[in-house]
Design a protein around this nucleic acid. Structure first.
Lengths: 225, 225
DNA sequence: CGGACCATTGAGAGCAGTCAAGTAGGGTGG
DNA sequence: CCACCCTACTTGACTGCTCTCAATGGTCCG
């Protein structure tokens, strides 16, 4: 049984149903950093869950500008925004060696029709996605956004049982910048200042969170909890 | 039968089911400008659909800062982000004399369990909400955001059969500013510049869209279509 | 008519963006 | 194994968009 089940779509299913659910799951991988899971515009047939590794999603607008829409950890679902248009709305790209679970959406729908727990879990996942993105509205300083990003990542890692004192950022600065809506140079400067102020220690893509209290305070505005 | 049914949650239901669906709908109102539909933290028991008028939703963070999360037109659903926490995550506030439909979520869930069309419609609505908010990520200029706001509103009004040459903005500048993440003074200045450039004509809260082509072009970056 | 509220306009400041130069790993080929 | 290169990252200087603060103008309403 997948160790992520508790955090993932099958959350809430009993033993029997969980086994039946696993029949509709195809494990895909291992993918390598740089592999695509799907591409913007592809026909939507399945939801994907990260099983191991990390995935980023992004879209390209008419002018060719890239827009990163998310970084996904194990247990998180990718492709939920494609349900209504039946086409994926972005590219999904492995940032690291990764395993993903492919779950036919037609079959998910069938099962959700039979099992109230699954319907509920689907709705809850979508709903928390909405609540999540609502938080990011509003104008925040570069410091607040950066702290928000780090704390959010740390919390998600903790939920998954990883230590979150030491974060390894698999994505490049440019990706973080794009995701947070700022320039990559600003990421560098903010990280440096955070380090000078004793909030974190940075070594390339490795970030140690040294003063969680103050980081939380900074992030509070963004994460609104 | 509600004229919004085509755009709203019962979309896709046949005549018979539509009638049964209507049994779980309570019409609430008329509400007057300034009335609340629900408040942040209230127990979530029902989804609301706007039937007539306009509703804004907003939350207040720990520091007392207001954050507007949406403006809702007839046929649009309010409260979807509360499903996972079973508490409303924001205040819902009538901007004008309005009617809303209260739909018990427990009953929606029951019906969705029986009717695939309703389950699908629920999932689609949530999914397009996600796709929608993803668009707003990224850093846009004040001009792009403003154009995006106007064009988005115009399109939604058109979908509902209203003329969209002349927009009446029921909310104050401060609300638009907050929603778009900028200062209210900037809203004034951008609207004035748009007017000077012949894109729109502004008279208080009434805005005429004069050059839809150029506005669309400006908005394109934000709305990404 | 006066007050309250909203909106506009102006002046100045500051945060973060752009441009450009410099640094540092990591990988490759000789 | 080392020199080289490429890419990612950092740092500095400067610019500019948008914010803030403050004053003014309009409109509605009692």
């Amino acid at each position: 049984m997948c160790t992520n089940a508790r955090l993932c779509l099958p959350h809430g299913l009993d033993e029997t149903r969980l086994r039946e659910f696993e029949c509709i799951v195809d494990e895909v991988g291992p993918l390598h950093a740089g592999d695509f899971i799907f591409r913007d515009g592809d026909e939507f047939t399945a939801l994907y869950a990260v099983r191991a590794g990390m995935v980023k999603t992004y879209s390209i607008d008419r002018e060719g500008r890239e827009q990163i829409t998310g970084f996904y950890l194990p247990g998180e679902l990718i492709g939920l925004d494609a349900i209504h248009s039946m086409r994926y709305r972005n590219h999904a790209f492995a940032l690291d060696t990764s395993m993903v679970c492919r779950m036919s959406f037609a079959k998910i729908r069938e099962l959700a029709q039979k099992w109230p727990e699954l319907q509920t879990q689907l709705l809850c996942t979508l709903s928390s996605g909405l609540a999540e993105t609502d938080k990011l509205r509003g104008e925040y300083s570069a410091d607040e956004r950066m702290a928000g990003f780090l704390i959010d990542l740390a919390r998600r890692l903790e939920q998954r049982g990883y230590s979150a004192e030491r974060l390894y950022l698999l994505m490049e600065r440019r990706d973080i910048a794009n995701f947070l809506g700022m320039a990559k140079e600003t990421i560098s400067r903010v990280l440096r200042r955070f380090q000078d102020e004793g909030l974190i220690a940075v070594d390339r893509r490795e970030v140690m969170l040294l003063d969680r209290i103050r980081l939380d305070a900074l992030a509070g505005a963004v994460l609104r909890d």
